[in-house]
Simulated scan of single mutants.
Amino acid sequence: MTQRGHVGIAGAGLVGRILAFSLLRRGWRVTLFDRDRLDGRESCGMAGAGMLAPFAELEHAEPIVNHLGLEGLHLWPQILSACKKPVFFQQEGSLMVAEPKDRPDLARIHRRVLAKIEDAQDVIAVDSHAMRHLEPNLCGRFGAGLYFPSEGQLEGWELFPALMHEILDRGARWHTCTEVRHLGAHRIETQDGAHEFDWVMDCRGLGARPDLKRLRGVRGELIAVEAPDVRLTRPIRLIQPRFPVYVVPRPDSIYLIGATVIESDSLAPLSVRGGLELLAAAYHLDPGFATARICNVSIHCRPAFPDNVPRVLHRPGLIRLNGLYRHGFLATPAIVADVLAHLAGALDDIQFPELWHRESE
C-alpha cells in the first residue's frame, strides 16, 4: 500500500485510536503520544457505556448529533469487522421508561424527539403489551415507554485493547506515559523533544484545554455489576426527576449502571450519595439488582463545548477533534471519516462541514 505521509496523534483515547487505526488501514504512517498506558484505562471512553443512541439523545442534543450517530451505526460494523479480536456489538434497539408519575416527562421527550426527526418509526410509544414482548421483567412496573428500534451498543472495554493490537500490529509507534507539552502545525513537543509530521491530530480531550479555552468537563459515573437475577436484553433509560439513569446489559450477566449529565469536571471518587442514587434507580428498575455484586466503578469527565456539539478545528498541518461530550462512541466514526476525506483532498466527500472551523495560525 502506498505510504501517504506521517501523522502524529496527541491523545490515544477513543478518538485517537479510531483515527490511528483508520489512517493505518489507508497507508499512512502513525505515531501516537499519550500520557496513559497502552490499555487506555485513564481515557474517558473507558468510563462510557458504549451506547449508540442517536434518537434517544435528541431529548437534549441538536439534530447534527443524530445524523452523526446514524452514520456511526453504519460505520461501526465495518470498523469492528476489521479487528481480529472480537468486540461485543448489539443493535436491538433501546428503551426509555418512567414511573406513572413521571409519564408527562416521557410524553414531553416523545414530542421533542418527533420534532427533530423525519420518520416517526424511529421512535415508538409502547404500551404494556409491547413492553411484555420487549422486556418482560419490566412490564409489571413500567407499563409504557419509548422504543428506539435502530439503536445499539458496543463494549468499550473490549474495543480499546482490540484497537491497541491492530494499531501496533500495523506498525505504529506509540509513546506511552508521555505528556504533550505543546503542539502546533506539523509539530508535537514532549519531554523527549520535538517531533515533526506531515499532519498533527490533537485528540487530547480535556487535555487540550490550555489551547481550547471554551472546553468544559461533564462528569460521567459508571458502576458495573454482576446481576444473574436480572433479565434485561437492551439498554434501558429510566427517566426520573433528578437525572436520567441508564442500565446497559452485557454478556455474562454484567450490567452497566450510570449517569452522564452531571455538570462537573471533578474526578473525585464516587460519593456515597451518588452511588446510592445509581444503585437505587437500578433496583427500582428491576429488584433483581438487590443480589448484584459490584465489579467496578469508573469516573471520568467528557470534553464539551458550550453547545455540546463536536468541533473539528483545522489549519494546514493541524487538525483538532474535540468536544464530543457524551457522544464519543456515537459520533467518532463519522467525524474520523470526514478527517480522512479532508486528508485525501476529497472535500466534497465531507458529510458534516458544519462541524469544521478554520483555526487562526
Rank of each mutant, 00 (worst) to 15 (best):
G328D: 12
H60K: 15
S271A: 04
L276M: 11
I223H: 01
G140K: 09
A20K: 05
H74S: 12
Q121N: 11
V15N: 01
A331H: 02
G13V: 03
K213T: 07
R29L: 13
P161S: 11
P228F: 09
V225I: 03
V200S: 06
N296V: 01
R315F: 02
L24V: 02
A331P: 02
G69S: 07
V297D: 03
A125H: 13
F243R: 14
S150A: 11
D169F: 07
Y283F: 15
L343T: 08
P333N: 12
D211A: 13
I188A: 08
A98D: 00
P333F: 05
R293P: 00
R219W: 07
V339Y: 04
A282P: 10
G217M: 07
F33D: 00
S94E: 05
H314F: 11
V123T: 07
F55M: 02
V126Y: 01
L73F: 05
H165Y: 10
M131Y: 06
G5S: 05
L321V: 12
G328L: 14
E226Q: 10
D122W: 08
I350Q: 09
E359T: 06
F89I: 03
A120Q: 15
E189C: 15
F160Y: 12
F305K: 09
A144E: 10
F88A: 13
P228G: 09
P228K: 09
R214K: 12
V126H: 04
A107L: 10
G317V: 01
N308L: 12
I257N: 07
R311T: 00
Y325V: 04
V7R: 03
A162I: 04
I64T: 01
H186E: 06
E99V: 04
I223F: 06
V339W: 11
A10N: 04
V261D: 15
L343C: 14
G5I: 03
H67K: 11
P287A: 09
Q91V: 00
W174P: 01
M131D: 06
A331G: 05
P316I: 01
I262T: 02
Y283K: 14
R103I: 12
G274R: 14
F55H: 06
M201N: 03
A144I: 02
L343G: 12
L276S: 13
L80G: 14
S81G: 08
G345A: 15
E57A: 09
I124R: 14
P310F: 00
N137W: 08
I124F: 07
Y246I: 08
I18Q: 07
F89E: 06
D265M: 11
A47H: 10
L154Q: 09
R358A: 09
G328P: 04
P136I: 01
A334V: 00
L232E: 02
D338N: 11
D338R: 07
G140Y: 03
K101T: 07
R216M: 15
H165T: 10
V87S: 15
L347N: 06
A346G: 08
R311C: 03
G193Q: 11
L285M: 13
I9C: 03
V247G: 00
F352Q: 02
G323C: 13
G217N: 04
E361Q: 10
I79T: 15
P287R: 14
W356N: 00
I109P: 00
E92F: 04
V180D: 03
P149M: 04
R103Y: 12
G171E: 05
I124A: 09
A49Y: 05
R4S: 04
F55Y: 14
L206Q: 02
R37P: 08
